[in-house]
Simulated scan of single mutants.
Amino acid sequence: MKKVLITGGAGFIGSHLADELIGHGYQVRALDSLNPQVHGDARRRPDYLHRDVELVVGDVCDKEAVESALEGVDAVFHFAAAVGVGQSMYEVAHYTRVNNLGTAVLMEALIKKPVERLVVASSMSLYGEGLYRSPSGRVCEAGERSLEQLRQAQWELRDEEGAILQPVPTPESKSPTLASIYALSKYDQERMTLITGRAYQIPTVALRFFNAYGPRQALSNPYTGVLAIFASRLLNDNAPAIFEDGLQQRDFVSVYDVARGCRLALETPAAAGEVFNIGSGEPQTVSAIAARLARVMGKEEIQPQILGKYRVGDIRHCYADISKAQRVLGYTPQVRLDDGMAELASWLAGQAAVDRVAQASAELSARGLTV
C-alpha cells in the first residue's frame, strides 16, 4: 500500500480524490490550510473528509510544514491553490504567493526528497480562448476580444473578414493565452513542476481540469466554480447572474470523473512528463446549465439574470478535446450530466449558503473589472 500526499486535500476535488485513492488501497495524507473563504471561519476538519485521511493543517508556503508532510510519502498530488479568475485580478500578491510560491516551496522540498510520481492540478483557464474553426473550415487560434467590441456587446470572436468563428474541442497542443492572474499562476504551477520533475527525475503529470462540479463545493465562496455560485444564488431564492449573453460555452465534468482521471495519472507509467485535459468533451452554454440547475433544484421559476457585461479575464468558448487522456490514460467520463446534476441537487437540498455574489460583483465593478 502506497502513501499519497494531497496538498489542498481537504477541498472539493482533493477530498473526492482521497475517497478514490482510499477505495483503491492507498493511504492518504492531506496538507491543507483550511482557508476561511473555502472552509468557513471555524477552520475545522470538514465532515465530508474520509475518516482515514490523515489531515495536516498547514500552509503550502511553509517550508517546514511541507517537508514534514512529505515524510514517508510515495507520491504527491499538488492541488493547493487560490482559485478564482475575478478575485485574482485584484488579490494579485495573494494568488501569486499561494500558487506560485507555494509550488516553488513544494518543488524545493521534492528536490531533497523525491517521490515516485507528482501530479499537479492545472486548469483550462490557461488556454484563454479555446480552438475555433473559420467559415472556410480552417482551424485557428483566436485572439482576445477588444474592449471596444465588448462595450458594443459583440461577444463572439470573428476572423479578419468579420465572420463569426465556431468553437471546436480544444486539445493540449493549443497555445496558452493567459487572460488572468489566476491563469498565469496555474500555467506557472504546471511548467514549474514539469521542468523540475524532468531535471530531478521525478515523474510528473499535469492535468488541466475543466469545470468540475458535484457535492462538497464551497457554496459560500463567490469565486468558486460557476455551478456552485449558481447554487448559492438559487438556495437563497436569487437569480443566477450571468455575464455577457449566457451563450458562452464551457465543459462541465463530474468531480467523480476528475478523481478517476487523477488516479489514472498516478498509475499510468506512460503519463510521466505529459499534460492532459480532464473534462467531459461536451460543450454546454452557461445559461442552459443555469436553467438546468434551477430545474433539478425545483426552482424553475427563478430565471437567470443576463447581465450583458464582460468580466475582465473571462473568455468566450472553451471545451475539452479529451482524446489524449482517453488514449494514454484510459480515461472516459462515466457520469452523465443529467445524473450528476440530479445528485448535486440532492446534496444541495441539505445545504445552506451565504450568498456573497452581489458583494463580489460590486467589488469587481468598483475596480473597473467589468465592462
Score class of each variant (00 low, 15 high):
V4H: 14
L5W: 08
T7R: 03
G8P: 09
G9V: 08
G14D: 01
E20H: 03
L21I: 06
I22P: 06
G25V: 06
Y26P: 04
R29K: 07
L31K: 02
A42Y: 02
R44K: 14
R44E: 14
R45G: 00
D47N: 13
H50G: 05
E54A: 12
D59A: 03
D59I: 02
G72W: 08
F77K: 06
V85H: 09
V85D: 11
S88H: 01
S88V: 02
M89A: 05
V92F: 12
H94Q: 11
N99P: 07
A104T: 10
V105T: 13
V120T: 05
Y127L: 14
Y127F: 15
E129N: 07
R133V: 08
R133Y: 03
S136W: 05
V139A: 11
C140A: 09
A142F: 09
G143K: 04
E144P: 08
S146Q: 02
E148L: 02
Q149P: 03
Q152D: 04
L157P: 02
P171Y: 11
K174P: 13
S185D: 01
D188K: 11
V205C: 04
F209N: 14
A212C: 10
R216C: 15
A218M: 02
G225F: 15
N238F: 11
G246Q: 07
R250P: 06
R250T: 15
D257V: 10
R260I: 03
C262K: 02
L264G: 04
L266Q: 06
L266Y: 00
A271K: 00
I278C: 03
Q284N: 15
A291K: 15
A291E: 14
R295D: 14
G298N: 04
E300T: 10
L307I: 02
R311L: 12
V312Q: 11
G313Y: 09
I322V: 13
A325T: 00
V328K: 00
T332F: 07
V335M: 09
L337F: 04
D339Y: 01
E343L: 14
S346P: 07
W347P: 01
A353V: 08
D355G: 03
Q359T: 05
L364R: 07
A366S: 14
R367E: 10
V371H: 10
